[in-house]
Design a binder for these strands. Structure first.
Length: 570
RNA sequence: GCGCCCGUAGCUCAACGGAUAGAGCACCAGCCUUCGAAGCUGGGGGUUGGGGGUUCGAUUCCCUCCGGGCGCGCCA
């Protein structure tokens, strides 16, 4: 499926290539705001090949290009060839695409049905989720939707941190200091207290760490008491996590924690040893990676015989390859683990599992104004508190703006708007940047925020409910491209599929967010300036209603790609 | 010390190597008898951290310095 915007761009490039030659490197640009054109082709790169100045080339092209049905005029402007769309044909094409595709408008077949495994969220068991877990969870969920929309078969796997030495410390602390009453009341809260206390005590008495290691070993060796307690911790944690996932409306196809791979690591180690990839060093088993430019070796097995997360991640990747046969595996994990993933991917290639794209979709850390978050030091903001506060603020605003809604409706709107605001605050900026946590920024409900976009949808739906729906039948009439506000909407709607492609390409949800914000701005301007239901003619009214319907559809699907919902009223 | 990432308006952020670097917030001045004002219009605000280089053209690519973050063998 080739969308109209894409078709128009291809037509423009081909028209120029017919004159300038097939092998010239051409690029397309969007003219700046004041320029009366829809596309621009810089002619500077052609100067050398065509032995003429960019200005002359642009002028000659403007005179000689043959424009297809989607293009109307060509003018030279300095070294640029500026092209305008044939508004009637272009708008009819775009609006036809939107109407025909409906909720699928913007969908791609880039994935060709191939499978992509997406590893995201992955909180550590026995601790509350902090705002630090938010990014992986919602970026991962957005990439899941994006891949599904682009023709992939996504598989979401929540790779829980449910194994490792941390359970040694927890088992020790549980036996040493458990407050049974507190544990019965709030198991995760009590486990957190034990975790923090252990850290403090172990500073004074380092021998505690040895005892914790003993517990860890007992757990790995299958000690029944240790196993039973561990299982209990995991169960409590999953229940707590699920509450948050329900609020966020995030789902996984699998929740295979690290412990799932406990019995799958032996094979990895054996293979690595047999192939001579792993060697003993200082009592540990390591994989040297100097030959691929990584100075730090990957440790496969500690000198005391215990495994590490490297080992589990290797087993995990191999399991995923064998079970799901993906073309890509995405790891949505913070940038602080870059080295780990470089090591992991390099080792997988050495082991012969290189026939798949491994992508570390990294993101910056969420920090507090006073520095890095640290659960151990109690310097942490819990995700649940942030979600509650967001919903509470949204709820107060609904009460003020729309007191006539029923109580359940207000609650539902508060949830959609509040949670949406949090997701948008994160997804609207480039994931590589660190974020300093700030309540007011994270929970903003005006300006460039989810509610602004949701309000766009609400306004559009308001018009459609008022009889606009029925008025929409019939062809789109080009008279409804006459004002700047209308034409801006046509262009924006037409651009959506390419935005999806660009976001997918770089694993950048913020590309979608930025686009939707621009669409919302265009719509609010249109809403203010252009009467829809009171339009002068039936054709105009019908076509404007179609624009409104298109905005509503794209806004809903676009926000859906970000995992953000839309209310009918707010 | 070595490696990776970031540095754009007072604050928070955008900007396929392309024309005059754009938004939001904050501040100031306007707009509700017309489809919902969670909105719209206008205003001031910039040596894109500094300095070199590549290029017809650099916020974008390269080098260097400064500032911040992260990582660098038995935690995850």
């Amino acid at each position: 499926m080739v969308y109209t915007y894409e078709a128009a761009k291809r037509a423009a490039l081909e028209a120029v290539r017919r004159i300038a030659g097939a092998d010239v490197g051409l690029s397309l640009a969007t003219p700046p705001a004041g320029v009366p054109a829809d596309l621009a082709i810089p002619c500077f790169p052609l100067a050398a090949a065509l032995h003429a100045s960019p200005q002359e080339i642009a002028a000659r092209l403007a005179r000689t290009v043959t424009l297809g049905p989607l293009l109307e005029s060509a003018q030279a402007s300095g070294g640029y060839l500026n092209l305008t769309f044939a508004r009637g044909a272009f708008a009819a094409g775009v609006m036809g695409d939107v109407h025909r595709m409906g909720d699928r408008y913007g969908a791609l077949d880039a994935g060709g049905g191939r499978t992509v495994v997406i590893d995201f969220s992955a909180p550590n068991v026995a601790r509350q989720m902090s705002v630090g877990h938010l990014r992986s969870t919602i970026i991962g969920a957005a990439l899941y939707e994006l891949h599904k929309f682009a023709g992939y078969q996504p598989i979401g796997d929540n790779h829980l941190g449910d194994w490792g030495t941390q359970f040694g410390t927890l088992l020790y602390a549980y036996h040493a200091w458990l407050d049974r009453e507190a544990y019965a009341q709030d198991p995760i809260g009590e486990l957190l207290r034990l975790y923090v206390k252990f850290d403090a005590e172990a500073r004074r008495d380092p021998s505690l760490r040895d005892q914790a290691r003993q517990w860890h070993l007992r757990l790995e060796q299958g000690d029944p008491d240790a196993r039973a307690l561990w299982h209990e911790f995991v169960r409590h944690s999953l229940a707590a996590f699920q509450k948050i996932y329900d609020l966020l409306e995030v789902r996984f196809d699998h929740t295979l924690g690290e412990s799932f791979y406990e019995d799958k690591m032996g094979e990895v180690i054996e293979t690595a040893v047999r192939r001579g990839i792993a060697v003993e060093d200082q009592g540990a088993l390591i994989v040297r990676l100097d030959d691929v430019g990584i100075k730090t070796p990957l440790i496969l097995r500690r000198s005391d015989g215990a495994t590490l997360y490297h080992t589990r991640d290797l087993a995990t990747a191999i399991y995923r390859l064998r079970t799901f046969h993906p073309s890509k595996i995405l790891y949505v994990v913070g940038a602080d683990q870059r080295l780990h993933f470089q090591q992991l991917f390099a080792t997988l290639r050495k082991l012969g599992f290189g026939d798949v794209d491994y992508v570390h979709v990294d993101f910056g850390l969420i920090q507090l104004p006073e520095g890095r978050m640290s659960t151990r030091r109690g310097r942490v903001v819990f995700l649940e508190d942030v979600l509650d506060e967001a919903m509470a603020r949204a709820r107060r605003l609904v009460e003020e703006k729309n007191p006539e809604l029923s109580e359940p409706e207000k609650d539902e709107v508060a949830r959609i708007v509040g949670i949406g605001a949090i997701k948008y605050a994160d997804l609207s900026q480039n994931r590589v940047k660190n974020i300093v946590f700030d309540w007011d920024r994270m929970l903003a409900l005006d300006g460039d925020s989810a509610p602004y976009l949701q309000y766009t949808y609400v306004r559009a739906r308001g018009i459609l409910r008022k009889g606009g729906d029925r008025a929409a039948e019939g062809p789109f009439d080009p008279v409804a491209t006459g004002t700047p506000a209308e034409w801006a909407l046509v262009l924006a709607l037409g651009n959506f599929p390419e935005v999806v492609a660009e976001a997918l390409q770089g694993y950048y949800p913020h590309v979608v967010a930025n686009y939707l914000f621009a669409l919302a701005q265009a719509f609010h301007g249109f809403y203010h300036d252009v009467p829809v239901l009171q339009a002068d003619s039936a054709a105009l009214r019908r076509s404007r209603v179609q624009l409104v319907a298109g905005v509503a559809t794209v806004m809903r699907t676009g926000l859906g790609l970000l995992g953000i919902g839309v209310p009918e009223r707010m």
